[in-house]
Amino acid sequence: MASSLNPVDHGWRKHLPLVNAFVRYGLLILVGFLMIYPLLWMIGGAFKNNAEIFSSVGFIPKAPTTDGFINGWKTSTEYSFATYLLNTMKIVVPKVIVTVISSVIVAYGFARFAIPGRKWLFALLMATVLLPKSVLLIPQYLMFREFGWLDTYLPLYAPQAFATEGFFVFMIIQFMRSLPLDMEEAAVMDGCNSFQVLTLIVCPVILPAIISVALFQFMWSMNDFLQPLIYLSSVEKYPVALALKMSIDVTEATSWNEILAMSTIALAPSLILFFVAQKYFVEGVTSGAVKG
């Protein structure tokens, strides 16, 4: 009724979606730019000379140079940055592997078996997610000191071999519970024992969840700083996180481009993985919150 009497109103409503989209895009572009700018600035800065870093807010280098990378790679220590990257992988790769294996096995037990005291065990599992790590820090340190594991990588991934990261176990449990039981029962009828059901049927089917877990653990382990800080004392065993911290203590005042270059390299594996496998991150982070 209003449209015939009031054509102006009609016209306004017709353009509303357009205005709406315009406002949304504008807002998103602005916020997105602010969000990404520190990263762009870091990458740009890695290719600048120090004088330019201090004189320009733009991120595109005027006179691109790889000096930052060349000098940064050498580092101020007797080891090159390659050593630290390799050390990081020596920690991260085993950690990801044992996390995935132990989490899948334990999640399978929780999701598919009537274990005595399952409710209690599950409550404990969830409690480990909320328990602040710092409350365990000192006794764990003393324990690993007793084991003679100080200045080795073992304290950094041995606990993960026992499904101690409740968040991941929970994530996989949620995923397994969303699977129809029929498929696993068909496998039992086909002659599988429960472990074969897990490896031949369940694992391939929940591969997206497994990838999510692996990716998250990879990122988090790359970012991990406090644990290596406590347990590693020889520089030759330092991962990238410690090496970077060390380099700002030593060279901050002078060579920002070196540090920015090494930061860029330090983030590169995570950045590449993120862009390649973005959907697994989104699935992973939402699985616990929405499905549950």
């Binding site: 132990s102 096995i105 078996f113 404990l124 365990l136 071999a161 026992f162 101690t164």
Partner: peptide, 16 residues
């Protein structure tokens, strides 16, 4: 089933 959650039980007791 208990066998599958054993790693968690050990890990929980020892490391948590």
């Amino acid at each position: 089933g208990s066998l599958y959650v054993t790693p968690f039980v050990i890990g929980f007791l020892l490391f948590t």
